[in-house]
Amino acid sequence: MKVALFIPCYIDQFYPKVGIATLQLLEKMGCEVVFPQNQTCCGQPMANSGYEHITGDCTKLFQDNFDEYDYVVSPSGSCTLHVKEHIPLKGRIYELIEFITDILKVESLEGEFKHKVGLHQSCHGQRGLHLSQMSELNAPFFSKPEQLLKNLKGLDLITLDRKDECCGFGGTFCVAEEAVSVRMGQDRLGDHLKNGTEILTGGDTSCLMHLEGIIRREKHAMKVMHIAEILNQAIS
């Protein structure tokens, strides 16, 4: 299966390892992966700030890069959601985890990852893309990321007090509402620290970048890995 990789701008520039892990993981699962070279950004930072009307050029560029592919895959729930809701494509965009569970039909993964892992559910992945059931609804439980993580040998998935509270990143919210943003991040980390998370993971690098910023400032021992990095490492 041929897939085009959409690597969001901040992953390209600051977290290339997440892009590399995504690419390698998909290749291990038998996909032919291409990275259209002229891609930049989906336009979400502007749109969420109220500037959707100036994202036309971004949208056009995105379509020029990705329109020829049936499957576009991205290791970011947030950017995927934006593309889904705002950029019409000839094919379809999938967040990495949902692509693995829904299109590649992977029920569970064989592998090993001997750590206590805390999963941070990004709101856009969870409530936007329905990667897992939301705690507000009276509806049956499911979790696509947990489906892939839970069978890895040695992996201890941490149970949190608040399983799907927002981390406070929120795009430009993280600087426009700096005090609340940081406080939300601290509280999310507090939940993970209290319950024993060694490695914090998630499907959205933006949330993780924000949380990692606080971890490093406050000098916590917790490590941060994108879920693509864990899966890629576990099944190698």
């Binding site: 856009h124 409530r127 919210f173 509402e177 939300m184």
Partner: peptide, 10 residues
Amino acid sequence: FASTLCGSCS
């Protein structure tokens, strides 16, 4: 703008 658009409210 006083929101992360997390969607829990909806």
